[in-house]
Design a protein around this nucleic acid. Structure first.
Lengths: 144, 144
DNA sequence: TGAATAGAAGATATAAAACTCCTTTAATAA
DNA sequence: TTATTAAAGGAGTTTTATATCTTCTATTCA
């Protein structure tokens, strides 16, 4: 569905959002540890998301990553777009470059319906909305 | 969504189904040409699907691939399972191995809904049903 | 039977994704 | 203002997915 890199990115963003609500900034060591991802790898991914303005970072001691209040409205769809590009939302289900309304592949019409469902689901899911369930231990971000 | 290999497989199966309805058997050269895939690569993929009994093959001159009548009910979901395995249908949306009803990831509940939609769409799409639109040139299987 | 055809199988090559390391830059705090 | 800390940036490695090539085997038909 989405790349492994993108899965890490979403988990990291949800975790950072939770920490950011408590006014705290989080280093990549803690992020990697809490979401169960390779440390240097997630750092790269997050640096890229900083450039794309989905979150903030700060260098130096007490530095790390955080999400500003106005960025808590960032949706999972925004993260997927930033990491994987638009292929999940705009590509053909059979990988045909020329597939379109006027020249559709056999599953085109069925496919655009479920793709729209996926998009809506990801678009409606805002990065700030997951904190409560995480704090209550109703949901989890790590493998084991 | 599905791997490139799986996209080739679906396109090939739909094409072979169409040919098979006319009692004809199709060689890998023609298949690769008509769906726009690498020749040796699609051969491999189809050989694997023969082993998994989604289609038939015959060696020698006049040999090739074909789909028996009772196999025309094969769904796109069957092909996806055979090629990509079950990860699209059963994996966690965030890649967490331990994600489940009792220990869900933050997007678990939203995700299982759209995943069910995807599964239903693919399960209801049978390999034999696309021939009519292909013959009428209402749908297409090739890039250019 | 034997030449020709076409899939089967194994080995190899290339490309993309995932991951790591090392150096540089910026911020902090002593 | 200097030592320290943590992200940024660049470059490299490993792994997995995709694609190709070659040899082998089964089948057909003259």
């Amino acid at each position: 569905m989405v790349s492994k890199t993108c899965e890490y990115a979403i988990r990291a963003m949800i975790f950072i959002a939770q920490k950011s609500k408590k006014e705290s900034i989080t280093g990549m060591n803690e992020i990697a540890d809490k979401i169960g991802s390779p440390k240097y790898f997630i750092a790269k991914v997050l640096q890229d998301l900083v450039r794309k303005e989905l979150l903030q970072s700060l260098k130096g001691p007490t530095g790390g990553f955080y999400i500003a209040k106005e960025q808590l409205g960032c949706s999972l769809a925004d993260i997927v777009k930033a990491v994987d590009g638009n292929k999940l939302f705009s590509g053909c289900g059979l990988g045909l470059k020329t597939c379109s309304e006027t020249k559709p592949c056999p599953i085109h019409n069925k496919f655009i319906i479920v793709r729209k469902d996926i998009y809506n689901m990801l678009q409606e899911a805002k990065i700030g909305e997951f904190s409560k369930n995480l704090e209550k231990n109703l949901t989890f971000l790590k493998r084991k």
